[in-house]
Amino acid sequence: MVIAFAMTMFVSCSKGLEQVSNTAFSVNEPGGVAEDINLKYTDSGRLKANLLSPKMLDYSNREFSFSEFTEGINLYIYDKDRNKSTIISDYAIVYDKTGLIDLQGNVMLSTATNDTLFADQLYYDQAKQWLSTNQPVTFRTGGDLIHGNGFDSDVKFEEAEVLEINGIITLDE
């Protein structure tokens, strides 16, 4: 009698747990939430990057997983000589499978050499280390301020190109 009762409880509990696990977690909800992020990436004891963000939503529970930074990011990237480049945006989303980062809203990228890009949206392909957008941009390089509709460049701005240039202003030094 006791064994029959225990078996009945075990079977009914296992079905209940299965139902709870199926309904308690929706793929439309993030699998995790992190707040006040201060993530440092080092390689061989050298700081290479530092990501700061008030909030990150982790959607690794989806087939096409991604991380969403709904309150923006500040990202500092350091080269081998410890020169710092800065990337700031109001919103960012990182797609895990493609390695593509979509930066949106008041995007500003400034290099250690003071080249600075301003855009409403900017894509960064991590594998190719390539930046691009088809949105309006302002690019400050050397003594020039260049306005255009689109931008393509490597991460060091060695191959930087403003597309559909609207105007160039030479700044006084």
Rank of each mutant, 00 (worst) to 15 (best):
S132H: 09
K128H: 11
S153M: 00
R140L: 14
D154N: 11
G150Y: 01
D154Y: 09
G148R: 03
K128S: 13
N134F: 09
G148M: 06
S132R: 12
A160M: 03
V162I: 01
E164Y: 04
V137M: 07
N134R: 09
A160W: 00
T133F: 04
P136Y: 03
K156A: 13
E161D: 11
D144Y: 11
D144G: 03
S153D: 05
D144Q: 14
L145G: 04
V162T: 04
S132M: 11
L145M: 14
L145D: 03
G150T: 05
D152I: 14
Q129M: 13
E164T: 10
N134Q: 10
G148H: 05
R140E: 13
V137T: 04
E159W: 00
F157I: 04
G150Q: 09
T133M: 08
H147V: 03
L131P: 02
T133R: 06
N134K: 11
L131V: 06
T133K: 06
V162D: 00
H147I: 00
S132E: 13
S153V: 00
E158T: 05
N134Y: 09
F151W: 00
F157M: 10
P136L: 07
S153N: 05
I146Q: 09
K156S: 13
D152N: 13
D154T: 01
G148K: 07
D144K: 14
Q129L: 15
H147D: 14
D152G: 02
K156G: 10
V137Y: 01
K128C: 09
V155A: 12
H147E: 15
V155N: 11
S153P: 11
V137D: 06
I146K: 01
G142Q: 08
P136M: 01
L131A: 08
T138M: 08
H147P: 04
S132C: 07
G150I: 11
Q129I: 10
L145T: 11
R140S: 12
R140M: 12
D152P: 00
T138V: 12
E161Q: 12
E161M: 09
V155F: 12
F151Q: 03
